[in-house]
Simulated scan of single mutants.
Amino acid sequence: MRISLVFALAFAIFSTCVYSQGVTLVPAIITFGDSIVDVGNNDYIHTIFKANYPPYGRDFKNKEPTGRFCNGKLATDLTAENLGFTNYPPAYLSPQATGKNLLLGANFASAGAGYDEHTSLLSHVIPLSQQLQYYKEYQSKLAKVAGSKQAATIIKDALYLVSSGSSDFIQNYYVNPFLNKASTPDQYSSYLVGIFTNFIKSLYGSGARRIGVTSLPPLGCLPAARTIFGFHESGCVSRLNTDAQQFNKKINSAATQLQKQLPDLKLVIFDVFKPLYDIVASPSQNGFTEATKGCCGTGTIETTSLLCNPNSYGTCSNATQYVFWDSVHPSQAANQILADSLIIQGIALIS
């Protein structure tokens, strides 16, 4: 994988851009979505979906719990490093999102958010519609820092990342009887993909041209899903994985149509289903010893709430052996594998 990564980056090097933070393959990274990519926005809003306390961040720089739902770096952090960034684009609601830091891009993601507005409202987090409004606000701030000409270039050439959909199913559809009785998983997927399509059109209308969107992961392999929905089924919950795969087919089809409709749009759907499923199915081949539960606490239910905390009994000592950090989110070690996969899949976005 590392050899492939080197070749991929070498191939893309001709598109290198030089900005204030050094040599990078894109001038900035702008991120929208949920807890998989949230770097701390939820620290600044009233919600229980926070990760700004130990043991979150215990393997991050200075062992600091920044609001990332991980023991260390997210896949997007590692992707930024792969692209030449030495600092990460800041959480937009944080005090760091000011001045020259805005030249790096910005992160608008909010843990618990989904394509469905109701998913975000249920969790009291920042919906995609509000994230988009913050992005437009960011553009104005960027113009003041960089000047309108350079700001326009940054907006056009930046890499846009979107991660959403998992919360819609795990925290809304599967546990909301009003919703899952009114719609089949297939119908709900179509509804979400319609929102995705409109969101991409809005991003495009605001200047975005290089957009990478994550597919759904194997939802049925998440430790929390096994605990809540697995009953006595051994291994991953097959029906949840089937739903995720059906959604992924729809979003790929929608992306193909969008590229036909919108001139100069580069849109890649990152397949995170297969690489994560492969790790879970064959953990030892990827350097892991545990793929059925997370490192924090029992690893079966602790996730985006206060259940994963400094007093969580049973938290593992070495997260590098675990595919999952808590019952939903990958460990830094798993994120490294995912990031390597993303950079290769996304070569079209940086070439």
Rank of each mutant, 00 (worst) to 15 (best):
L93D: 12
P95T: 14
A97I: 07
A97Q: 01
T98L: 12
K100M: 04
K100S: 02
N101W: 01
N101I: 04
N101Q: 11
N101L: 10
L102M: 06
L102A: 09
L102H: 00
L104R: 06
L104D: 08
L104N: 07
L104F: 00
G105M: 04
N107I: 01
N107C: 09
F108I: 06
F108R: 03
F108Y: 02
A109Y: 01
A109L: 02
S110G: 11
A111V: 06
A111F: 00
A113H: 04
Y115H: 11
E117T: 06
E117Q: 12
H118C: 02
H118N: 11
T119R: 05
S120Y: 10
L121A: 14
L122T: 08
V125C: 07
I126N: 07
P127Q: 05
Q131A: 03
Q131H: 05
L132Y: 09
L132W: 02
Q133P: 04
Q133S: 14
Q133M: 05
Y134V: 04
Y134H: 10
Y138P: 03
Y138D: 00
S140C: 05
K141C: 03
L142M: 11
L142K: 13
K144H: 02
V145I: 15
A146L: 11
A146G: 06
A146P: 01
A146M: 09
A151W: 00
A151K: 07
A152N: 09
T153K: 14
I155C: 12
Y160R: 04
L161F: 05
V162W: 15
S164G: 14
S164V: 15
S167W: 07
D168P: 15
D168A: 04
I170W: 03
V175E: 07
P177Y: 13
N180C: 07
N180W: 12
K181R: 14
K181G: 03
A182K: 15
S183A: 08
S183W: 07
S183Q: 13
T184W: 03
P185K: 00
P185S: 00
D186R: 00
Q187L: 08
S189F: 01
Y191R: 10
Y191H: 13
L192K: 09
L192R: 08
L192T: 12
G194A: 14
G194V: 06
G194Y: 05
F196H: 11
T197P: 01
N198P: 02
N198F: 09
I200D: 07
K201I: 13
Y204W: 01
Y204H: 03
Y204N: 02
G207V: 01
A208Y: 01
R209F: 02
I211A: 15
I211N: 14
V213I: 06
V213N: 08
V213F: 14
T214I: 09
S215T: 12
S215A: 08
P217N: 10
L219Q: 05
L219Y: 02
G220S: 04
C221L: 06
L222V: 13
L222H: 09
L222F: 15
T227P: 00
I228G: 02
I228H: 09
G230Q: 10
G230L: 05
G230T: 04
H232Q: 14
G235Q: 12
V237W: 05
S238L: 12
